[in-house]
Amino acid sequence: MKKNSMLRVEGISVSYGPVRAVDNVSIEVNEGEIVVLIGANGAGKTTLLRAILGVDKAQSGKVLFLGNDITGKSTDRVAKSGLGLIPEGHLVFSTMTVLENLQLGGYHNPREIDSNLESVFESFPVLRNRLDQTAGTLSGGEQQMLSIARALMSRPKLIMADEPSLGLAPKVVSEIFDILRDLNKKGYTILLAEQNAKKALEFGNRGYVMETGRVVLEGPTQELMSNPEVRHAYLGSNV
């Protein structure tokens, strides 16, 4: 059964000066899917996500979200339309409290903040006890959870997660992936950019492999996992 397309990126390119960070990339994310972007550091994953959200401006190409053309729109409007990015490096407003961080996440639906808070606490019971703590004093894993929770506060239709495992202990990484999987079961569509190819491919339904700004391979994750090139380059096995 063909599912509804949620996000369609058509041939976008992003350059920083003479460096082409993303080169004519097209990807698609359908409703209910987990799509993973894998590739080495510097392959252009982060730039692609930033370009989708309008943080970095694309020189060419188009981004369609829920059927609307969002290319070139300002970041806050794109975010408001239902695209939630969990940025790299567990970014939180470190001088503000956990509660304030969550309230900021729900900026666009102030009336539903309380009900959203309740549903967020179901996924992240840790945060409930730390509401008045300054976010900067949380551990890395807790900050990443707060970052995810903050994105959920806006009730996004698509969650884009940028390297959520970066810099976290293996046990915490598994925890984060469990949470993301739970969210998918609850109906959230997820686009995940991840260096850890093995974890990502086990986790997702479909995947894209990026190298130096281009998509070099795509397909269901099972297929990618058995692809000899992927195995050689990213999974570290000698075929």
Binding site: V55, S74, D76, A79, K80, F93, S94, L104, Y107, A151
Partner: peptide
């Protein structure tokens, strides 16, 4: 306060800068 701390993060979570 959010913008004063990190304007990029603020725009990512949908705050109109």
């Amino acid at each position: 306060r959010a913008i004063s701390e990190n304007s990029l993060l603020s725009s990512i979570i949908g705050i109109p800068i």
